[in-house]
Simulated assay, not measured.
Amino acid sequence: MNVPHIMTPGPTEVRENVRLARSIRCTNPDLDYNFYDFYKETCGKIGALLKTKNHVRILSGEGILGLEAACASLTEKGDRVLVIDNGIFGEGFGDFVKIYGGEVVFFKGDRKREIDIEELKSFLESDSNFKYATVVHCDTPSGVLNNISLICPLLKEKGILTVVDSVAAMGGEEVKTDDWKIDILIGGSQKCISAPPGLTILSISDDAFNCMKNRKSDIASFYCNLLNWEKYYENKWFPYTPPISDIVGLRRAIDNMLEDEDILSRHEKIATATRNAIREAGLELYTEEGYSSTVTVIKVPDGIDDKKLRNYMVDRYDVMIAGSFGYLEGKVIRIGHMGENARIDNVSHVLFALQKSLEHFGFKCKCDMFSCFLREF
């Protein structure tokens, strides 16, 4: 199978040392007590990355598992839940809340901009009777980054638990879980962490666990029941058999990140240079305010079919970028510069391939995008 160079906003390229780590001989993770120590140590490393002393867990399932597990574990029938919505994934949190019987109240923001803190503050002054609130750190389909350093403390001041989807930002944007009062923070292995898809990463506060333990009704799930994970180490019992090879690979990927002292500044510099090159070429960014350092979202020029453009890039230049979905399907293309993809050579090559492909379909760029990009380094 020919695998193109993926420059999508997840999954991302996986470094060779991560691929090799996944190939080591397996033990029985349920019965080998050494693996419980390995798992706990790995969670500790993730906690250091996320700047938290909260409980950290690794679940077997793509990042969506974490979103549903948070809602399943916190929501009881009739609970009012605030869903902060300025994007497709932000709105999607409401579906999980409804599945478990919660009453969804949306706070809607401009989908091209980050959440307006003053508007949210005004909203909460009139209505703050919520069990918990959900917010997306980086809404990947649109590339909008929300300021969770302000949003979450504001919610906690009102006694509202905070659930943050940081799947597309964790590792590429700063996260200070404890300082920012985040009760449940959710990430995925395949984005900035640059491990293969298949794992959810969560940090869970004592407040969140206490809320789960004080429910009047049982959690309506087993696989999504986070309480099952609370005492895994003390009891030497996993709720289900962990995917050991995936977790060994994740450990190596986390070590790669911890060893990279400039990881956040690297993401920021590359994102800024990418956006500048896109603008200078005469293309238009979708996002107007609140730019993520992990993904750039570009409006498709008039007269160009995004699927044909992306397929041409794969066939001619062996580079894969992404379209989008929902209300953005066919309207934008997305470059993922996160994790292992956030390298100067990777991004300059994708900009070269994009420019040549655009020109093939009749759009004339006003500059050599890769040259404009490289000029900033």
Score class of each variant (00 low, 15 high):
Gly249Gln: 13
Ala133Pro: 06
Met170His: 05
Glu68Met: 07
Glu114Leu: 14
Asp139His: 05
Ser166Val: 03
Arg275Met: 06
Ile335Tyr: 01
Arg334Lys: 10
Tyr312Asn: 06
Leu124Trp: 08
Ile204Ala: 10
Glu340Arg: 06
Thr287Phe: 05
Val14His: 06
Arg22Glu: 14
Leu283Trp: 07
Ser122Phe: 11
Ala169Met: 10
Pro196Ala: 03
Glu289Lys: 15
Lys308Pro: 04
Cys211Thr: 14
Thr42Ser: 11
Val14Cys: 03
Glu16Gln: 14
Ile58Asn: 10
Phe222Lys: 04
Val81Arg: 02
Gly102Thr: 09
Ile160Trp: 15
Ala220Gly: 12
Gly330Cys: 00
Ile99Tyr: 04
Tyr132Gln: 02
Met1Trp: 11
Leu154Trp: 06
Gly198Pro: 08
Pro242Glu: 08
Ile24Trp: 04
Asp165Phe: 07
Leu328Lys: 05
Glu41Cys: 03
Arg113Gly: 01
Ser324Cys: 06
Met257Ala: 12
Arg22His: 04
Arg343Val: 07
Ile344Glu: 11
Phe363Thr: 01
Lys156Val: 10
Ala21Asn: 10
Leu82Trp: 12
Pro197Asp: 15
Ala281Leu: 15
Ile58Glu: 12
Asp183Val: 04
Ala342Ile: 11
Cys211His: 13
Gly90Thr: 14
Val14Pro: 01
Leu309Tyr: 07
Arg266Cys: 13
Gly326Ser: 01
Gly92Val: 01
Pro242Asp: 08
Phe222Pro: 00
Ile186Lys: 04
Arg343Leu: 06
Gly78Leu: 07
Ser221Gln: 00
Ile201Lys: 08
Ser203Tyr: 01
Met257Ser: 13
Pro153Asn: 02
Met338Phe: 09
Val81Tyr: 10
Pro239Trp: 02
Glu118Arg: 11
His137Glu: 08
Val164Gly: 13
Ile115Tyr: 11
Leu155Ala: 06
Arg215Met: 08
Glu174His: 06
Gly187Glu: 14
Thr75Arg: 02
Asp179Gln: 15
Ala271Thr: 05
Tyr132Gly: 02
Glu376Val: 06
Ile335Met: 03
Lys191Met: 04
Val300Glu: 00
Thr296Glu: 03
Thr75Glu: 06
Arg334Trp: 08
Ser265Lys: 15
Gly303Asn: 05
Asp255Gln: 03
Ala353Glu: 11
Pro301Asn: 01
Leu328Thr: 10
His267Phe: 02
Asn129Ile: 12
Ser357Asp: 02
Glu284Tyr: 05
Ala169Leu: 08
Lys98Arg: 14
Phe373Arg: 07
Lys98Trp: 03
Val14Leu: 07
Phe352Ala: 07
Gly362Val: 09
Asn2Ala: 08
Lys77Val: 11
Ile184Ala: 10
Leu20Val: 00
Asp30Leu: 12
His267Thr: 02
Glu268Cys: 02
Glu114Arg: 15
Glu76Val: 02
Ser73Asn: 05
Gly44Arg: 09
Glu289His: 13
Met1Glu: 13
